[in-house]
Amino acid sequence: MNAAQRFVALDLGTARTRSLSLGGHAMADLPSVIVRGPDAVRPIRHGMVIDPGACLRLVRLALQDTRLYDSRPLERVLAGVPLAASRSDRGAVRAAVAEIAGCEVRLVDEPLAAAVGAGLDVLDSRPGLVLDVGAGIVEVVAFSEGAVIDAAALQLSATTGAGLASYALEGVVDMTAALARRLRAGARPATRARGLVVTGGGARQEELLRRLRGSVRLPISVATQPQHATVRGLMRLCLQPSLAARARPDRSWS
């Protein structure tokens, strides 16, 4: 790798935005809130841009923080997007990041980035499962050989400091169990061996984990520092551009 290159991983979340510069010594972690006059504006909802102007300011703040640790010109930004994001949603993220960064911008599906950040071998032919529990959207994916093979998402109308609300708990557990059942029968033993890994800021909610263990019938584990799994995975993918390209399908999942 050219020593002059500077890559940045960017996770634009509903509640928190995190950025990490290659070789940086600290992760920038700030609330996804912009103060505009007397109001506090949240430019991201369900992990997607709803206020482009405020999103530009949020991206600028996140990238400014990375320059505290590395002042070289930016060569590339890898930004995470939900699998559920539409083509126009992805375009809004790309436009906002490109305008501020002034360099190549690649988009990566967040749950697959979270799997990489959790230390999973996403190139394995055996299907793996990841449940990414964010503040505005929860996504569960099955992946194999570097690509998502099935996925489902649940958008959240509200979150609390205690984790998912009761209405959302049931929906997330049902969604996850349904995806596990959809796996072809021949792949289930291998999937059981790998289990389900939970990432995201809500990954440690005990009631969620208890219900998952009762319904999904798979070994359940929580990633180390699960709230940082996506941005860690994005940074690792900066070093594996061929894999990052495979993590950017054009289709959206529902």
Rank of each mutant, 00 (worst) to 15 (best):
V8E: 08
Q225L: 13
A177H: 06
R45W: 01
G200A: 10
A3R: 13
E170P: 00
T199F: 03
S125F: 11
L78N: 13
A153K: 13
A152K: 10
V108I: 10
V148Y: 11
L239G: 08
M27L: 15
V141M: 08
P249A: 07
L209G: 06
G47C: 06
I44C: 04
R72I: 05
C103N: 05
V41W: 03
L131H: 05
I44Y: 12
D132V: 05
G80S: 14
P226E: 10
L30H: 09
L22A: 15
G53S: 10
A54G: 14
A187R: 03
A114S: 12
A15N: 08
R182T: 12
D250H: 12
R210K: 15
V105W: 02
L156M: 06
D174V: 06
L164G: 04
P111D: 06
A4D: 13
A96L: 01
D250I: 05
T66V: 10
A3Y: 06
C238H: 14
V231L: 13
L169P: 10
R210M: 09
P219F: 02
R94Y: 03
R45V: 11
S252K: 04
R232Q: 11
G102I: 09
A95N: 05
R210T: 15
A95I: 02
R16Q: 02
G24L: 10
L131E: 06
D174R: 11
R67Y: 12
G23Q: 03
D11F: 11
R213Y: 02
G117M: 05
V49K: 04
A98P: 01
S254N: 13
E139I: 08
G119H: 06
I34F: 04
R236K: 15
D150F: 01
Q240I: 00
A151H: 04
Q227K: 11
G146E: 11
